[in-house]
């Protein structure tokens, strides 16, 4: 089963297209890292997935074909929006009541247990809680619905490292306990790298890269070799990034190499997720065929 499918998805605002011809299919059972620069369309994609936004073109379906935002989908998809917008004037306990009233299967005991373990006061107004506590509360309310798909839109952006770690631990624990799928948007690649096993990379409103992280990393390699010979690499491979000095060059290419199979005179190394993501984000402009995962031709030019 796929947890999120889009076909030709586009969303246009007055300022232009935030998403364009976006086609993807994310299988169930993954923690998906959704990354991309500001304005790449991450929030727009997630808002379309939970029915907050209506696509300008194409379609979005969740959990095996349910229309995004439909009653059936809303019951099984939980969403924690950016900045965790909760009703600030309500005490935490009443916020739980609100969530319980709006969701038939809401697990109050689960929520109370989590909040107790996080030492979040129940009688304090939500607006008075710290940013970390608000994010944890929003996550708790989402998890107590026992969703099949949890969508998180940059929930850790304003958290300190400890709160960030605690938050991610909660997510991973919930995945282990409930077996839910998670789509997680964030700029904090190091945290995503720690927990995610599937990568979805957006750039300029299109899908630049998608797939299980192991496979994605295996499809890429870092080649180190003589700077004089860099043109031969450029002509033979899809170059994503290049760092060249007078004598030595390091090139990130699409296409994995088994040990010892790198071009003559070059050494092949594994690529880190952060390095790979940065390389894709630096590519500009994105090739037109990137929307269907092809990655397209390299825009590299020998310098």
């Amino acid at each position: 089963m796929t947890v999120l499918e889009t076909f030709g998805l586009g969303k246009r605002y007055r300022s232009g297209w935030a998403l364009s011809d976006c086609t993807l299919a994310i299988p169930a059972g993954h923690i998906v890292a959704l990354v991309g620069p500001n304005g790449a369309g991450k929030t727009t994609l997630l808002n379309c997935a939970v029915g907050l936004l209506r696509p300008s073109s194409g379609s979005v379906r969740v959990l095996g074909g349910l229309p995004a935002g439909s009653p059936g989908a809303l019951e099984r998809v939980a969403y924690v929006a950016q900045d965790a917008p909760l009703v600030g004037q309500l005490p935490t306990q009443e916020m739980i009541t609100v969530a319980r009233c709006l969701n038939p299967g809401f697990d109050v005991q689960n929520a109370l247990r989590r909040l107790q373990s996080l030492e979040i006061p129940l009688r304090t107004r939500v607006a008075k809680l710290s940013g970390g506590q608000q994010a944890q509360l929003a996550l708790t309310l989402a998890l107590a619905r026992h969703p099949e798909l949890l969508i998180l839109d940059e929930p850790i952006a304003r958290l300190d490292p400890v709160a960030r770690h605690d938050f991610m631990t909660q997510v991973v624990t919930a995945v282990a306990e409930d077996g839910l799928s998670v789509i997680f948007s964030s700029h904090v690649v190091s945290e995503l790298e720690r927990v995610a096993d599937y990568l979805l990379l957006l750039s300029r409103g299109r899908v630049a890269l998608a797939g299980p992280i192991d496979e994605v990393l295996a499809e890429h390699a870092c080649l180190s070799g003589p700077a004089d010979d860099v043109r031969s690499i450029a002509n033979g491979f899809d170059v994503l990034d290049l760092a060249a000095g007078r004598r030595h060059a390091r090139v990130l290419v699409r296409g994995g190499f088994a040990s010892g199979q790198a071009p003559a005179g070059w050494e092949s190394d594994d690529v880190g997720l952060e390095e790979l993501i940065l390389a894709y984000l630096r590519r500009s402009p994105l090739p037109s065929g990137a929307g269907d995962f092809t990655g397209g031709a390299s825009s590299w030019q020998a310098s």
Binding site: V50, L74, A81, P85, A99, L102, N103, G105, R145
Partner: peptide, 9 residues
């Protein structure tokens, strides 16, 4: 807060 209430069941 509509991003919370409108995405509930």
């Amino acid at each position: 807060t509509f991003r919370f209430t409108w995405t509930q069941a």
